[in-house]
């Protein structure tokens, strides 16, 4: 899992957690999740120094996370800063607001981008009322 990390990116930890969550799926759950999301997300995260790190969340074929651009091609590419991604993953910022305010930019299927929140949610255990 260490191969997912990129030095200096807060997003690294989230990606690792996400990967852990995906690995925790049983086959049936994985299938359900794939069917529910059915998309490949390419994340282009930039840090304040404009360095860019790329991860891909495949929620269409394999149901995994890997470093680097999507192969085959992504259904939607999301460009945002490291901070924005952390806030999105923590649920402090909602994707639509981020998109409206220009913190999140997308290429490709925007409708699919709205599903990213649900995918990221699995990375974080959520307490219940």
């Amino acid at each position: 899992m260490s191969d997912l990390k990129v030095e200096g990116f807060k997003a690294s930890d989230i990606i690792v957690r996400l990967s852990t969550a995906f690995n925790g799926f049983t086959d049936a759950e994985r299938k359900a999740q794939l069917k529910k999301t059915n998309g490949i997300f390419e994340l282009r995260i930039s840090d304040p120094k404009k360095k860019e790190a790329i991860w891909t969340i495949d929620m269409k074929k394999e149901g995994n996370v890997y470093k680097g651009p999507a192969k085959p091609k992504a259904d939607v590419t999301l460009l945002m800063s490291d901070d924005t991604f952390s806030q999105l993953a923590e649920g402090k910022l909602d994707g639509q607001k981020a998109f409206m305010t220009g913190k999140l930019k997308t290429k490709g299927n925007v409708m699919l981008a709205t599903k990213l929140g649900g995918v990221l949610e699995t990375a974080k255990g959520k307490a219940k009322l």
Partner: peptide, 17 residues
């Protein structure tokens, strides 16, 4: 069960997961 599996994987105990 799902959350339990996550805990095991985080512990690197894939056998338990």
């Amino acid at each position: 069960w799902f959350t339990l599996r996550r805990a095991f994987i985080s512990m690197d105990r894939n056998d338990l997961a």
